[in-house]
Structures are given as structure tokens and as C-alpha cells.
Design a protein around this nucleic acid. Structure first.
Lengths: 259, 259
DNA sequence: ACAAAAGTGTTACGGCTACACCCATGC
DNA sequence: GCATGGGTGTAGCCGTAACACTTTTGT
């Protein structure tokens, strides 16, 4: 899969990008949760100091959502994850000419002004929620590294990727009010304090233990298991698991509140 | 402005569409409110029975939001209105070949399979909220009519425009919980019952008079004027006006509710 | 034993719901 | 004067916020 992408990009750079939908790309903000930190999967660009969101192009006749899924799978190895488009970034200033020209030069390809790769790109932002422990980050052809970065310490990003990232986070925070989220970011089994930490980290504020628990349970999407988690110090918290049936229902109906 | 669009489309059909960002379009769901009905502005296509959402293409170097604004202005004459992108529709099946081929044929233009106008188009959906009374619908070059249609009686639409319309409505309903809306859909001065009717129509359900009023006023974005509206039968309701200052603030902060 | 984490419960406040009553206007 | 629409007020319910106590576990 990764190879496919590599070849296609190399080929495309030469072949005038005929395989792709023109002037259009997809960028993914992939969120993970680990060690009480909300993290994003970033790529370190070759031939540049800047980092970037995982992204790619859309094949002609390929569904846009499918393209995002393909890119996500290429970077994480995961399939079937929570993935939603949230905004299209189409400012005319977001031509990638500077960076992309460098990439062409690095490959000693002709950097004709009218090369498709130097044209203005419109990009659709997706955000994904994944189980950190199941991800094996893999760099793509134009990157020298792919790794998780704590949201608190995001380095300089190319183009408007910082804007995309911020918008994704904002969208995620709003979504918390409408839809249950934790399922996608946590392992199958997790404790209530873990779930709470996740929410606190996303929202950037502390929540009351008991109120949080009561509210969460009131949604009726959690199933408590047998105690366990004996390893930790202090009292052993229960494990919970999302009730798949109820969870899907809640995703559809939304959470209570509002009209 | 309208003429510009006409000419550009005609030119573009001949000139291989070099002026536009390729494979990309914008469609606008323009909502208005009149006679207790929520309405959408639709175009009746020439050479076809189907109706369509107002849409168009994006010039190279033109901001996507600006393009939507330009299209909106061309159809309604309005500028400075509430306009938000809400979803990108990019299924591969949404090639416009059937319809667009017809349009080319009608103009006796060459319908080469690889004509840019016959390629797959990705389209970004916008929804707009406008003051019905200030709109003068104007058809574009490819339409024989442009008019308001009650949401309850929307005719058959081309392509996936019904899907776009539904998604816009769904988005609007969700937005009601986060942001004050009425400002854009009503005249400067309006009565509380009118505002309520608007909400009821959007949501599709009845609301309690007093609770609605109390809640609305609690947002602190309304200013009551002198009584008036003597014309109608029965007791004269007060006029209200949105406090521009507070309204903008509420748009930023969002409405109470949630975490 | 003690500290820290986690389970469970209780109270008070505020917003929302569901009502009732009065006033104004046109027929 | 009666029907209809519109302004204003109030009691109950429920969810949330704020807070205390007990239980477990490792040191």
C-alpha cells in the first residue's frame, strides 16, 4: 500500500498527474491518546525543516472519503476507523509552489511553472480518531519520518497545516457535545478515569469525577466489566467497554441537549 | 455581474475551462423565509425538466468562499450575507456527463469525451441565510428560471442536489443549538411570533410561546422596540431588532449548553 | 497507618416544561 | 362580546454543579 503510494507519486510527478483529480488534495488530522496526552500524527518532510499533516491526492473515479481512508491506512496501518471531513481549505494563497518546487528540484525533475504539482491546491481536511496502541506510523515517499507529536508541542507546519490542525481540534471539541467519542481513541477496555482524562485533555479543562461518571453512564453506552486493573497503585478501577449496539445508536441520534 | 458569469461560462465551454479551477464546483443552498414557509432558491434548467441548486465554478486564484459569495450575489443581488460551507460532495458517481452533455449539445459545442465539462466534478456545498424580501431572483445562463420553492414541495433535482439540500437542512438544524440564526433570515424589525415561526419551521415542530420567548431573550441579543405592528388583527405584538454587538459576540462564543 | 485513587451518594441551584391569566383588537 | 393572538407570571421537574464519605491498595 505504501509502495503503491510511492510509485504513484513518483509516476505522477512525471506523468503530469493524470491519475489524480486535478488541483485537489486531502489532509488528515489523526488524533491519538497516550500517556494522558492528545497526540497528532505528523510527517517530517525531506529536504525541509517543516512538518506536515499526512495527506495525498484523490484518484480519478475514487471517492474522496475513500481516498482519505487510503491515506490513513497507509500511515497507520489501520482500517475501519472514525474518519470525518470537516472543512475545505481553498484560499488562493495556499499554493504549494515553494515547497513543491523544492521537492521537484530534489528529484531533479523539471520544475516548469505550469507543472501540475505547482498549481494551486484545494485541500479537504479530515480528522480521524484512532487507538494509539494499534498504530504503527509509517513515513511516505516525501517524508523522512512519521511520528506522534503531543498537541502541546506541535512544531512549525508547512503551508496552512497549523490552521487545518486548529480547525480540526475545534471541530472535535464541538462534536463532544453531540456525539460520544471515546470509543475510537481508547482500547477496547478502559477505565472511567482514563475516559475522563481523555475528555479533559480534549477540552483542556478539569471535570468533576462523579458528575462525569454519572453523565457518561446516563448515555447508556457503557458496559461495566469485572474489576481488574490490579497493577496500578491504589484502589483498582473497573474496566468498561462500549456497547457497540447502543454506541452506534447514540452516534445516529446524537446526545441530549438543545432543541 | 450576471453578464460576467454568462460570458465566462460560454467562453469556458469553448476555451477548455482554463479560467476555472479544474474538476471543482460550488453549490449554494440559499434559504429564505416567507409566509411561514422555509424556502430555497432553485434554478429551472434549460433543456431539462430538472431543477438545480445555484452553483458555479471557482476561478483560479479565487478564494472558494469568495466564489460562493459571487454566485450568491449573482442569483440574489445580495452581498454580505450569512454563508457557510458545510460539506464536500465528492462521490465518483457524481459525474455530470448526462446533463452536461445535453448542455453542450444544446449549444452545438463539441461533446468530446475528454471535454473538461464532462469530467467528474467535486462540489463544495454552502448554505446561505438571506432576507427573503430583499432578494430579486435572477436566472443564470443555463437556466430558464430562478425562483423560491417551499421546502415542503421541492421538485426533482439534478444529480445529488437533493442530498446536498438535505445535508444543508440538517446542518442548519444543528447550528440552531449553537448559534443564533434568525438575524439573517428576517427583516431588520420583526416580532417575536415571527421569530418563533421561523424556528418552528426550521425544526419542523411546535414550540411553546412563552418558553421560546424567555429563552430567546435570555441570550441577550434582542432589543425590544416600541409596540407597533398595528395592522394585523388582534393584539399588536412588539417589534424586536437584533443587537448587532451582542449578536456577533454570541456568534463567536456559541450558545450555552454542553461542556 | 497513611496517602492517594476510586466507588457511591446528597444537596442546592438553574434552566426548562407545562401550565393560567390578563390584555388588545377585529368581527 | 367573543374569538384569537399576544404579553406576562408561576410551580414542578430534571439535569448539573458542588461537595463528603467510604473503600481499596501500595508503601
Amino acid at each position: 500500500m505504501d509502495q503503491t503510494m510511492n510509485n504513484n507519486l513518483e509516476d505522477a510527478l512525471l506523468e503530469d498527474g493524470e491519475a489524480f483529480h486535478p488541483g485537489f488534495s486531502v489532509d488528515c488530522v489523526i488524533f491519538g491518546f497516550h500517556a494522558n496526552q492528545l497526540k497528532v500524527l505528523l510527517l517530517k518532510m525531506k529536504h525541509a525543516e517543516a512538518w506536515a499533516l499526512p495527506g495525498g491526492f484523490v484518484y480519478k473515479e475514487e471517492d474522496v472519503e475513500a481516498a482519505a481512508g487510503r491515506i490513513l491506512q497507509a500511515r497507520t496501518g489501520l482500517t475501519q476507523v472514525f474518519l470525518r471531513q470537516f472543512h475545505l481549505f481553498g484560499g488562493p494563497a495556499r499554493s504549494q509552489s515553494g515547497l513543491n518546487r523544492m521537492m521537484l528540484n530534489a528529484r531533479q525533475l523539471p520544475a516548469d511553472e505550469r507543472h501540475w504539482f505547482l498549481q494551486r491546491f484545494i485541500t479537504l481536511g479530515f480528522y480521524a480518531l484512532v487507538d494509539f496502541s494499534r498504530v504503527t506510523p509509517r513515513a511516505d515517499a516525501i517524508s523522512e519520518a512519521c511520528q506522534w507529536v503531543d498537541l502541546k508541542g506541535v512544531p512549525a507546519l508547512i503551508l496552512d497545516h497549523d490552521l487545518i490542525l486548529n480547525k480540526a481540534l475545534e471541530t472535535l471539541r464541538l462534536q463532544l457535545n453531540h456525539q460520544p467519542i471515546g470509543y475510537n481513541l481508547l482500547p477496547e477496555k478502559f477505565t472511567m478515569p482514563e475516559l475522563q482524562k481523555l475528555y479533559e485533555t480534549i477540552l483542556g479543562k478539569k471535570l468533576d469525577r462523579r458528575n462525569f461518571q454519572r453523565r457518561m453512564l446516563s448515555f447508556g453506552i457503557l458496559k461495566r466489566l469485572e474489576e481488574r486493573r490490579s497493577g496500578g497503585a491504589h484502589k483498582a478501577p473497573y474496566y468498561y467497554r462500549f456497547d457497540q449496539q447502543q454506541y452506534q445508536q447514540a452516534l445516529q441520534d446524537g446526545l441530549p441537549g438543545g432543541w
